[in-house]
Amino acid sequence: MPQSSKNHRKPRSNYYDRRRHNRRLTLTEEQKKQFDDLLLKIDLTFENRKLLIQAFTHSSYVNEHRIYSFQDNERLEFLGDAVLELAVSQFLYKKFNSMSEGEMTKLRASIVCEPSLARFAEELEFGELVLLGKGEEMTGGRNRPALLADVFESFIGALYLDQGLEAVYKFLSQTMYPKINDGAFSHMMDFKSQLQEFIQRDNLGQIQYVIVQEIGPAHNREFVSEVQLNESKLGVGSGRSKKEAEQHAAQQALIKLSEKKDK
Rank of each mutant, 00 (worst) to 15 (best):
V112G: 04
A82V: 11
K233T: 14
K256M: 15
V212Y: 02
T105M: 10
F126V: 08
E259N: 14
H65L: 08
Q54T: 10
E122G: 00
A109M: 09
P2R: 06
V88N: 01
V236I: 13
V212H: 02
L86M: 13
E123P: 00
A253S: 06
E123M: 09
H58Q: 11
P2E: 08
F223V: 06
D150I: 00
F35S: 13
Q34G: 15
P11M: 09
L124D: 05
Y15C: 01
K94N: 10
H58A: 13
Y16E: 14
L92I: 06
D72F: 04
L257A: 10
D162Y: 13
T26M: 11
L25H: 09
I199W: 05
G141H: 06
N230K: 06
A184N: 08
I42F: 14
F223M: 03
N203T: 08
D36M: 02
L165P: 03
A149P: 00
K6G: 00
P178W: 14
R24L: 13
S116G: 08
E231A: 06
E74V: 05
Q163T: 07
D72I: 07
I67K: 11
I111S: 04
Y16D: 07
S5V: 09
H8W: 14
N181A: 04
V62M: 09
S116A: 15
I67P: 07
K10V: 11
M104K: 15
K32V: 01
A250N: 01
Q31K: 13
F46V: 06
M99A: 09
M176R: 01
F56T: 12
M138Y: 01
D190S: 12
L76D: 03
G140K: 03
N73I: 00
L172W: 07
L257Q: 04
R75C: 01
L132D: 02
R20K: 12
L27V: 09
E122R: 11
E30N: 11
R144G: 00
F126L: 15
L44K: 06
K192V: 06
Q251F: 10
A87H: 12
L165D: 11
S13L: 06
V112M: 06
F191G: 00
G235Q: 04
V168T: 08
L132P: 03
K256Y: 15
L27T: 09
R19L: 11
G133T: 03
F56P: 07
S69D: 11
A167E: 14
R49M: 05
M99Q: 09
